[in-house]
Design a protein around this nucleic acid. Structure first.
Length: 464
RNA sequence: GCCCUGGUAGUGUAGCGGUCUAUCAUGGAGCCCUGUCGAGGCUCCGACUCGGGUUCAAAUCCCGACCAGGGCGCCA
């Protein structure tokens, strides 16, 4: 790997220094563990040199780690000259370890500072940096993503991933408390849940295989297996030619499936319980991160409004949109609807229920309403006019399922492994899929969904 | 895939036929400064995406390629 960059490799060898005996990494404390109450103690800190302010007779260095920054203060007369010189001239973003004395001091913003007595330059950064970490100039998202390892050092970017962690943590907490079992299903599959156009094809020991676009068929198989209530948080792959601020080629899908439901409403209750709990969890746990991102914490209380697809169309017609009942709501209509529902129901979160069968055509496993087969029990769950969740009760009766597969011009033979589970005891069941990045995108009101992924994959980007 | 817009120092930009030896900020190199935290002062460094064309003259106009941004369709 280094073969292509001998220069970089050589430089790395030269500039890296073994940890000197004066610094014991076993005692290293992260910035959040230090406080003014430790006045006079010897401490070891390590991190990235974020900023150096050399005023001549005194210097200040902000040393950053995952938790924040700590200030190193170097009064020239009290620091050994060689150490002063080394610390004040090391390039920004170099990684260093420092031992020193913690001093409580009201003049320091944190209320304390560290007076260094020894340092180790663990990795000296080259200059100039490909992008600034704390510079006050804008950086294009494309530049940021091309230098993502450096972009992720920025505190507001890191904050997104701390929120993501809390969002998934809150989701797991809720689902676990509701008796759902966390599972993992294969991502290399022989057949897709929907049409073939959106599948990434790959060569599997000479045979054709695909990256899973959804765990749908496996989730349902597990209902046949008697797992009753399961969830999965895993990547899903879509080879759609979408190039927008809300699409990714690889995204994280939070999928839920549950047996013995009476109808889609049972599924909706889990959706709203999950979403409300996750938002509340984030609001309580990530106050600092939310404030850094300019987001007001909010606690959402279910139930959320439920509007039938037909009602939504009528609302849009009332607002002057050209649309007919039974017709799909386009992107513009979806956004309008988000505004209307917020105004009339006071909620950013709502369900669109009773989707017309015609609009869920690819979704052959959707159960249709007995009283009106032109409608399904399927719903979308929307957040500020963006689709967050799609789900509903599945068709568990084999003859109808086969008929619906055939109606979609697909061959039941291709789904044999899946259909087999319906022949030997399949309970009525339903579930949903939630786009984790979509959730973050809307919750944090980020301009682009790519912000929510460490290393996003889109139509053109496969590196880094 | 379609429509629109744009590519100028490491980064973000101004300029949009001659006055460009290309603006500003940020950054980098260096110097001064004992309380910085958007530090301050001084010096220097660093760029017109590529290929054709039009013109006396192209960063600037035209064509193509490549790259990027926004929108649509589709979807989580």
């Amino acid at each position: 790997m280094f073969g292509a960059h001998p220069f970089l490799y050589r430089q790395w060898l030269h500039r890296s220094i073994r940890m000197p005996d004066a610094i014991d990494m076993a005692t290293r404390a992260r910035s959040s563990k230090l406080s003014a109450s430790m006045d006079g103690q010897e401490v070891t800190v390590a991190g990235w040199v974020q900023d150096t302010r050399n005023l001549g007779g005194i210097s200040f260095i902000q040393l950053r780690d995952r938790d924040g920054t700590v200030q190193l203060t170097l009064p020239k007369k009290k620091i050994e000259p060689g150490l002063f010189k080394e610390l004040t001239t090391i390039p920004r973003e170099s990684v260093i370890a420092v031992r020193g004395t913690l001093k409580a001091n009201k003049e320091a913003r944190a209320g304390f500072e560290i007076i260094p007595s020894a340092m180790a330059a663990l990795n000296v950064a080259e200059t100039p940096l490909p992008m600034g970490v704390i510079d006050k100039v804008n950086i294009d998202l494309d530049t940021r993503l091309s230098n993502r390892f450096m972009d992720l050092r920025r505190e507001q970017v890191l904050a997104i991933f701390k929120v993501r962690d809390a969002l998934l943590g809150g989701s797991r907490e809720y689902l676990s408390s509701e008796g759902f079992l966390e599972v993992q299903t294969p991502k290399i599959v022989a057949a897709g849940a929907e049409g073939g156009a959106t599948l990434f094809k790959l060569s599997y020991f000479g045979r054709e295989a695909y990256l899973a676009q959804s765990p749908q068929l496996y989730k349902q198989s597990l209902m046949g297996a008697g797992f009753e209530r399961i969830f999965e948080i895993a990547p899903a792959y879509r080879a759609e030619l979408s190039d927008t601020v809300r699409h990714l080629s690889e995204f994280t899908s939070l999928d839920v499936e549950m047996s013995f439901v009476k109808d889609s409403d049972d599924v909706m209750k889990v959706v709203e319980g999950l979403v409300a709990h996750a938002i509340t969890h984030v609001s309580r746990k990530c106050t600092a991160e939310l404030s850094m991102l300019g987001i007001e914490p909010s606690e959402q209380k279910p139930p959320f409004p439920r509007l039938t697809h037909e009602e939504c169309v009528r609302l849009l017609q009332g607002a002057g949109k050209k649309i007919e009942v039974g017709q799909d709501i386009d992107t513009d209509g979806e956004k309008m609807l988000g505004d209307i529902v917020k105004k009339e129901h006071g909620s950013r979160l709502y369900f669109i229920t009773r989707f017309p069968t015609e609009l869920k055509r690819g979704t052959f496993y959707a159960m249709r309403l007995d009283e009106d087969p032109s409608l399904t029990g399927y719903f979308d769950f929307e957040f500020d006019g963006e689709e967050l969740v799609s789900g509903g009760q599945r068709e568990h009766r084999l003859p109808r399922l086969i008929a619906q597969i055939e109606e979609n011009d697909m061959s039941p033979e291709a789904f044999e492994f899946y259909l087999k589970a319906f022949r030997f005891g399949m309970p009525p069941h339903g579930g949903f899929g939630l786009g984790v990045e979509r959730f973050l995108h809307m919750l944090l009101r980020l301009p682009n969904i790519r912000e929510c992924v460490l290393f996003p994959r889109d139509r053109v980007r496969i590196a880094p």
